[in-house]
Each structure stands twice: as C-alpha cells, then as structure tokens.
Write a protein that binds this DNA or RNA. Structure first.
Lengths: 117, 117
DNA sequence: CGAATATATCTACAAATCTTGATATGTCAA
DNA sequence: TTGACATATCAAGATTTGTAGATATATTCG
C-alpha cells in the first residue's frame, strides 16, 4: 500500500471488508418476505409454524428465507420439542443500526472541488 | 388456518407494500461496490470521474451501480458541462434511517405463547 | 464541422437467487 | 415401534443480478 494523498485513493482494504459485511446484512434485508419475517419477530420469538400462518409462504420457502436471515446472523433459532423458535439477534440489531448510522452520518461537507473546467 | 389468536394474522397489504419499498432500498445497499460509492458520496457531491478513481471499477460497471442507486432513489445526478455529479438524496437518507428504525424498534414484548405442548 | 472526452446504454454471458416439489431428519405420542 | 408432525435440505428450473466489452449520446474544444 503506497503513499496516501489527502483525499480518497483506492479502496482501503478495511473499508472493503466492512462493506462486504454490510452488504451481507443489507442483502438479508433486501427481500420482502424476509422483511415481513423480520417484522413478525419484532414482537418476540416465534415458532416457524406461526410464521407459516402469518406469511403466505410455502414451508420450504419460509425455511429458505429463515436460513438466509440466520446465515447473515440476524436471527437465532432454538429448538423446543418438535418446534423451532426464531428470534431477532439483539447484537445483530445493533450492528445493523450502527452500520446504517456509519453510512448516513457525516454527510455534507465540502463539495470536493472536482472536474473544474 | 383456524381462528385468529390475539397476535398476527395474514400479511396486511399496507405492510406488504412498505416491505417492497424497504426491500428496494436495502437491495440498493446490498452490494459492496454500491456501498463504497455511497460512502464516497457522504463527503458530498462527486463527479463520476472521481468515483472511477476511488473505486477500481470499469466505467460501465460504475455506471450500472450508479443507475441502481438512482433507480432506488438514493442518489441524484446533476449534469455540469460534460461531467455528471452524483450526490446522496437527503430525503432518501431519512427514508432509509426511518425504515431501519421501524424495523428494529419495539422489539422485545411478549414471547407470544405459541406451540405449547 | 470533426475530434476528443465523459458518461450512459446495449449485449452477451456467468453467477447468484428464489421458487417449488420431493425427500430427509428429528421428535413426540400411541 | 410406528406413525404423525414440524422443519430442514436437496434438486431443478426460472429469474435476477453483476460483469465486460462494444457502441451510442452529449458536450466541449479546436
């Protein structure tokens, strides 16, 4: 990694890694079905059977989306007898929130003198 | 699907529409390249030529991602001579933030009695 | 006008994603 | 055990997305 100018150079590796994680989170939230699941879980833990009722989702389809959310670390599951309960992961919630804050905070500074004729 | 308990029924249409819009926003943010663009724009308006330098992106690829962000309403463009400047859309920023707040707020209530043996 | 520059759009194509239907796994109850 | 239930996983096809390269459009400059 060579010298650094004052302004932006090429993508810093750290930034790239963070971007990848954020992309993963946002991707998990980028589907309507998953958002509805997410909303359903806001009120607290729900078993899959309840979710099947709430959404009009086929069983395997629901399972697929739950897995996507879980792989992204947004939800946790817990087995109780033959039922499996999903809930939002509080840490992930915080991560999402701060990711977005990072993203949107500190806008509006200099209009970066650029491309002046 | 028998009688309704106290809790959620089927998906309310309003909720579905909102979920679709939120999904659109989150989808726009679900790619590392786009997130880097987004970050680059936090500091203020940038012309495409600057962005090409910041990211290691081919011209058409950058254009593609800018269009995606624009279609989702997250950025605006403005032509000035032969250059085109992109900037974050303040309203969209607010929309994103409140979408996320909606999503994460008000978790933790009743663990919805469900599937009791 | 014609050339050069900045950027968008089009065209394939590869890879990722979503959906459905079928099957597997784990758990309880008779 | 066996069967019923709850859920996950697999397989295949349709759709969407991202990339690269080629070409088109707008704008300035000479």
């Amino acid at each position: 990694m060579p010298a650094a100018a004052s302004r932006p150079r090429t993508l810093p590796t750290a930034s790239a890694a963070r971007a990848a994680r954020m992309a993963e989170i946002f991707h998990a939230l980028s589907d309507p079905t998953r958002l509805l699941i997410f909303e359903a879980l806001r009120g607290g833990e729900q078993c899959v059977c309840n979710l099947t009722g709430i959404l009009e989702a086929q069983q395997s389809r629901l399972s697929f989306h739950l897995k996507t959310l879980k792989d992204a670390g947004l939800v946790n599951d817990r087995r109780e007898g033959r039922w499996i309960h999903y809930s939002l992961d509080p840490d992930a919630l915080e991560e999402v929130r701060s990711a977005l804050d990072d993203l949107t905070r500190a806008a509006k500074s200099s209009a970066a003198a650029c491309c002046r004729r």
